[in-house]
């Protein structure tokens, strides 16, 4: 069981992440003998059989795969109304499809993004767009291969919950949210670039690094 960081604290997770049923036939794609890990943006996440075969717990709060939600809305509608349905999407699924699948995005208490690998950067854009383009205000959770070394970037892109991989320390991961104190560029957590946050030093007042003073000169420091 992975441990959940939410809003800078380690918390008990009361949501169950529903996994897609395994496909009947596991098709492994390979290129030059290597298994293809990443799928192309816009690829289908699941077959009709997988969607139908996905087992959703009968009670409690559930985070459901987007593809399952799209096909089984009627069955889940009462639970959504009760605030007990969240959605998760793969990094290759389109955030626009998720937005289009619910009349009110903010009726979802949580949206999770599944990272197949820590280096699949599409998840960062998904979170950014949910916050800045589509006005989503509730929890955005990182699930899958979530490690502390990507947490600072995730936070800046609008994630506020992280299911840290079960074999890693959530306590140590918490510290990584503070790796940098004053980033250069604007992002979701603070849209202002550094020059709009602070008055910065111009050349006339800068300490020199350029010329090394000759031995008889004092170094300006």
């Amino acid at each position: 069981m992975s441990k959940l960081i939410r809003n800078n604290a380690i918390v008990q997770d009361d949501w169950a992440v529903v996994q897609l049923a395994s496909p009947a036939e596991e098709t492994v794609r390979k290129q030059a003998g290597k298994v293809v890990i990443f799928k192309l943006t816009g690829e289908q996440a699941a077959s009709a059989e997988q969607i139908a075969g996905t087992n959703i717990p009968p009670g409690g709060k559930v985070i459901v795969p987007l593809a399952v939600w799209q096909a089984r809305k009627e069955e889940l509608a009462p639970r959504l109304a009760a605030g007990e349905v969240g959605l998760w999407l793969e990094t290759f699924e389109l955030v626009e499809d998720l937005v289009a699948s619910v009349p009110d995005l903010n009726s979802l208490p949580v949206i999770a993004v599944h990272f197949p690998r820590p280096v699949d950067g599409r998840g960062f854009t998904i979170a950014t767009m949910l916050r800045t383009r589509f006005g989503y205000r509730n929890e955005i959770r990182a699930i899958g291969d979530v490690l502390r070394d990507q947490l600072f970037y995730m936070k800046r892109c609008g994630f506020n919950a992280y299911a840290i991989r079960a074999d890693r320390s959530a306590e140590e991961a918490l510290a990584s949210l503070r790796d940098f104190s004053e980033p250069y560029q604007g992002a979701v957590d603070n849209p202002l670039p550094v020059w709009r946050r602070h008055a910065r030093v111009a050349a006339a007042h800068a300490v020199t690094v350029g010329r090394t003073p000759a031995s008889h000169e004092d170094e300006v420091d």
Binding site: G121, Q150, C157, P183, Q185
Partner: peptide
């Protein structure tokens, strides 16, 4: 340079 340094959205491009 400053803008692209640790840009959180574009640290893991294709």
């Amino acid at each position: 340079r400053q803008w692209s340094t640790f840009h959180p959205e574009f640290a893991y491009l294709p």
